[in-house]
Write a protein that binds this DNA or RNA. Structure first.
Lengths: 346, 346
DNA sequence: CTGAAAGCGCTAACAA
DNA sequence: TTGTTAGCGCTTTCAG
């Protein structure tokens, strides 16, 4: 080993300079170097300066892996996302990364496609990598995932994803109230056959939240429930929305509440392509207020959600959990709104 | 230490089971456990089975951090992306992650906003984290970034980002030829005042590639170059496109080649809102073929790029570089096409 | 086919 | 304020 070090420039392999090298060169102990590198205050200014000089001279960069092993902290958090390509989740991811960066964390990003198997696999990998925390996105969590989440014993926060059992910290909007409000708008516009559309009606986020809001509204409005107005899309894509148009018309609906912007855009464009005017003949209200809502013609009325903030707040919450801080409220609901654009009458 | 382990269940701190525990329980050495966990063939089947049983019984999970320190491989690669929220880059990121997963790598994702300072900071962080490789996205690389990239001495591949000096491996399409082809289409449609729009005309990807293609075409078509037709957007957003519309009309252009789909959508919608018909009165051709091109009305004609593949191929290329494989071609150009939709006449 | 032992580069008591 | 010394959990020669 020493032989290798001595040979210096003659070495072929790239020479990594370690804390030991710095210590020797600065005539101090490794502990002291560690202290100055970690901005530990208990170091005499002169010593600190001396070390800093050597650090610069040798271009020393601490090895985070070694650090992680010794300190049991990796300063990285895992992020499970259904699909980066989905603008709703991408917006959250951006919020997460920004706050993570602010708190000196890095993000390991894994796409799950909302698939339970992949989610579990990702969780295991993240666990092996010793991440300090995990942000989980995926609308809701299956029992198997819940089990795994308990298992890994790593702080977890759900972002834009509900936990009906309130077992894990989460950041969301109140989906039930949001749909309730949206229904009423549409109802006031004269619609009493309002369809509700989501990609998976049996998922908790729909079954336990959105559809309940829908039914609350139905009840208060004195409108009977019609099962045929609950429509399931094959997935959260533009195409799946486009294909739904015919069925929607046949259902007798005159308006639709859609839980995803891409799907809503598909429905709207399909209406237009089939000479059904939006909003005159059919009103469409969507849910995510992604930028797409302003790009379509007509533009889309929507629930407004603070997407970026949902991500940002989740990450902030996670830092608190990781630091064992006292959490006053584990299930944060950010406020939503209703934005009227051109796809609804009022 | 032993004391602590002995206390077993009595311990408060969560007990992590290590390779040492497995070895003891299975009455073999750590080395043997390591071998079976890493699927090293030189292990007698019975021994392997015995170890595997204990692994399962104790629910042993290898610690990747310790592994990383010992083996100097972290099986994670860094990905620098301007913005996950940008659908062009998000599509590449998805391709990257899928192939990474296939090769057992994880991805550390960092948003740079295309900002040189952030790019350099990210590079340094990734270096500290000892990533095995880096995928860089950002259109092109400044001299400072180039310097840093050389410095870190970690395999790098550029995805959807040009390196005019061909110093680093990269995966792209031939932007010059693509713009050339697109110009000709528009020219054949009867336009001789065709604007070219990008967010930063002085960036290499525009200056050295796209604008050259534009000028090649100009020359072959015998059309004089007009500087006023080279238009810079403030950024790659829908709004910046929307705001450009007036200037575009004033420039005398009758068609535009736009280098970003969001910007193109903004321009198109602004035209529509100002009662200028696309494509009858103004033709718009865009560049990325993201899904947005099908969502706008009219739909957008575009260059088609294999976005997902650019990411996927980049990651595949990176695995080769990391494995020191012989690379036949360092600068991969994937094929592009031209897709006619409704925003151009032919 | 298996084991012993020396690290990987750093942090964190504990002393001094 | 600084140094000494154990490890952190695993891989990897090198023997046997």
């Amino acid at each position: 080993m020493n032989l290798i070090r001595e040979r210096g420039v003659a070495m072929k392999k790239k020479q990594t300079v370690t804390i030991y090298d710095v210590a020797r060169e600065a005539s101090v102990s490794m502990a002291t170097v560690s202290r100055v590198v970690n901005h530990n205050h208990n170091v005499k200014p002169e010593t600190e300066q001396k070390v800093l000089n050597v650090v610069k001279k040798l271009n020393y960069r601490p090895n985070d892996v070694a650090r992680g092993l010794a300190s049991k902290k990796t300063t990285t958090v895992g992020v499970i996302i259904p699909n980066v390509t989905n603008s709703y989740f991408a917006a959250l991811a951006r919020g997460i990364d920004d706050i993570a960066e602010m708190y000196q964390y890095n993000i390991i990003l894994t796409n799950s496609d909302g698939d339970e198997k992949k989610e579990i696999k990702a969780l295991n990998t993240l666990y092996s990598k010793q991440v300090d925390g995990i942000i989980f996105m995926g609308n809701d969590i299956s029992d198997e995932v819940r089990e795994e989440l308990r298992n890994v014993r790593t702080p977890v926060v759900l972002a834009g994803s509900v936990d009906p059992k309130n077992e894990f910290p989460s950041v969301n909007i109140d989906y039930r109230k949001a749909i309730y409000a949206q229904f009423n708008k549409l109802f006031e516009n004269g619609n009493d056959r309002i369809a509700f559309i989501a990609d998976n009606l049996s998922r908790s986020i729909n079954k336990d939240y959105r559809i309940r809001g829908y039914q609350d509204a139905l009840k208060d409005a004195g409108v009977p429930f019609r099962k045929s107005l609950l429509i399931e899309a094959t997935d959260v894509s533009y195409e799946s929305g486009y294909k739904l148009q015919e069925r929607l018309i046949k259902s007798g609906a005159t308006a639709a509440i859609v839980s995803n912007d891409d799907v809503a855009a598909g429905i709207m464009n399909a209406m237009g392509d089939n000479r059904i005017n939006v909003p005159e003949q059919f009103e469409v209200a969507t849910s995510d207020n992604t930028q797409l809502t302003e790009m379509t013609r007509p533009t889309m009325s929507t629930i407004t959600q603070p997407l970026y903030d949902i991500g940002a707040v989740s990450m902030r919450l996670l830092t608190k959990v990781m630091d064992n801080e006292e959490i006053e409220n584990n299930n944060i609901l950010l406020s939503f709104g209703l934005k009227k654009r051109e796809s609804t009458k009022d």
